[in-house]
Design a protein around this nucleic acid. Structure first.
Lengths: 362, 362
DNA sequence: TAAACGATGGGATACGGTTTCCGTGAGGTG
DNA sequence: CACCTCACGGAAACCGTATCCCATCGTTTA
């Protein structure tokens, strides 16, 4: 019975305990477990038996300190509650698991301080990549901060991945996985316009949010393409939530009640808008058509089912992880330069039952 | 210029680099950073300047090897996409962040193998606690496996927390954070019964799922309390998803169309049921009342807004983390025994607009 | 039969910090 | 003025693994 390790030992067993008990050296135990070195069958059996008896697992911290270790990807998100997030996270997590990677999650709550703290924390953890989710705010200072993060992570052998936001300007070591935001909005607006709608209430989201800007821009372009004058007075900005959709429509019904369709920046906003219309006695889609954006499950669960733009969130998550994994297993080539650093996935309109041609108003 | 560290050094800076550049010892740098030892103002300034210049962060792996380190909590979930999960995770993550803890996330995808692998992975990571989310399957073998996990984690200085599932039997070192599942179902069913409903379609969930069992049992008790015979033929089991709600109602409308209310095991199931009723030309709540369970945001976004049972998911997450944090900072007392090991949070009915008295049928 | 060789196992060291144990210089006290 | 504290800096011993290098033993070849 050893002195420093009593019988009723608490805490985890170390590789030394295993070696001692099996009567072999630590090196041999390590070799049996990692399996990257020839070991006799007898030794393997003896070691494995002790491993089972002691319920031993290797210490991940020690392992990564010594060079090996499981690669880890960190997912940073404003609000873990968003449905879109869940799908991206699923994609990232799934792809990570597939490769034996681990995933960490942190929430920033829209707080730049917290975001900074989290990126540093992840840097401490030595994560292989930090995935930043969701639309970005279009401030100059924001761009600078992200660029700093990117360089800082890059210097530490990690990598920054931006998902669902536009790429950083300049020569910044970061990967962007994006979707055709503007194109989706263009197609969605076109769908309404070709159904005959001319007075459309537009709820793109927060004016400073890049996703909102893209969606608004796409809609605008569609109006131009159809030769329909775009009325800025029909645009109402606000957060991507149910309440905003509800209130925006409520207000619009008082101020500019002659709209025949609502172009919502998000399915959730569309749900709020739908509820407001119904409360006001307007039928959907008979009196007013509604379209959303994102194609989260909610879209097909509303009544009527929502016509919306499908965004491949889960796929984006998978692509994001694949990008960093590839870079890491790295063929070594093309580390910088515009080719693999900006991936754009397609969007498309999903037609359901929330759009009808407008009632004749003459 | 040092030999082993060239000017354009790649990889992260070590504490030695900082010490060298600041012209002090490693120990001093460590003291400045951890702040648990008196240090002169001059030294602190010199060190901090170098830390900023080098953009140095301590290596979390080395730190935890040496004893310190950030406590980490692991959240294990079947499907990251569920709305209920998101809220528990938010609670856990929020409370973790508050204490400077880190949170890991893993998904099991209902695969026992994967669950086992994940628990071991977490054990390797030396997590302070593993939080297992969601209803459990009521198999004996399952109980055994959980008990093993609990003991294994406990032996490694970690701790198992079960959230939203019944506690393990026997003397197992695990904490359970639960909600009054059966009570909520009782209250919800009572609500329907007191409105006058007698023929109620019950969609409790999968028969083997503990949450479904509790919800069914609560409903049953309510029927007994009201002296209304409970018809087992009106119960349809199935997964907690939209499709099941839809299909169950579709089938019921053919086989036993005289029900006046639907008691759904979940808000999402209720949404599916609602859609099926509407498709079949039944109005909600005029012709058929519907109630759900969980009170996720969807409940108040449906039309009509759903009367449901509120489950304090986020609070459960917070409580779960607090439980392990307390145990860890531990007053040392009462490690075992029934007092702090099983926490039950209350549920309550949220009345909205999806219930009306049944139409007179005579 | 001796020498060379392949297959294995053991010992030592590095990974990046934290922390304990000392040593030393400055300042206060009898 | 001598002595004793006090405050802070430096050297070294771990934390648990992986791996490099060398020793050993049984075989095969000259």
């Amino acid at each position: 019975m050893s002195q420093r390790k009593a019988a009723g030992d608490v805490g985890r067993a170390t590789i030394r305990d295993v070696a001692e008990r099996a009567g072999v050296s630590v090196a041999s135990v390590s070799r049996v477990l990692s399996g990257n070195y020839p070991v006799s069958e007898d030794l393997r059996r003896r070691v494995m038996k002790v491993v089972r008896d002691l319920d031993y697992v290797t210490n991940a911290h020690a392992r990564s300190l010594a060079g090996g270790g499981t690669p880890t990807v960190a997912i940073l998100i404003n609000n873990i509650t968003g449905a879109a997030f869940a799908h991206v996270a699923k994609g990232v997590e799934g792809a990570a698991t597939l490769r034996g990677w681990l995933s960490l999650v942190g929430t920033t709550g829209d707080d730049p301080e917290r975001e900074l703290a989290l990126v540093n924390l992840m840097r401490q953890q030595g994560v292989a990549a930090v995935v930043l989710l969701g639309g970005a705010y279009d401030y100059d200072e924001y761009q600078l901060r992200m660029a700093r993060f990117a360089r800082s992570l890059d210097a530490a052998g990690s990598h920054l991945v931006l998902v669902g936001r536009p790429p950083l300007e300049g020569d910044v070591p970061a990967t962007t996985v994006d979707y055709d935001n503007e194109g989706g909005a263009y197609a969605m607006a076109s769908h309404l316009l070709s159904a005959g709608h001319r007075k459309v209430l537009v709820l793109p989201g927060h004016a400073e949010l890049t996703t909102a800007q893209g969606r608004l821009k796409g809609a605008r372009r569609a109006f131009e393409a159809y030769g329909v004058p775009f009325d800025p007075g029909m645009v109402r900005h606000g957060p991507y939530d149910y309440e905003h959709g509800y209130e925006a429509v409520e207000t619009a019904l008082e101020e500019t009640p002659d709209f025949t369709a609502v172009l919502a920046g998000t399915d959730v906003v569309a749900a709020g808008a739908m509820q407001a219309l119904r409360t006001a006695g307007r039928r959907v889609p008979e009196d007013v058509s509604i379209v959303g954006y994102d194609d989260i499950p909610l879209a097909s669960q509303l009544t009527p089912q929502l016509t919306t733009v499908h965004v491949p969130y889960e796929e984006m998550g998978r692509v994001a992880l694949r990008a960093v994994a590839d870079r890491r297993e790295g063929t070594g080539g093309r580390r910088k330069g515009g080719d693999g650093d900006h991936l754009v996935l397609g969007t498309h309109v999903v037609v359901r039952n929330s759009v009808r041609p407008p009632l004749r108003q003459d």
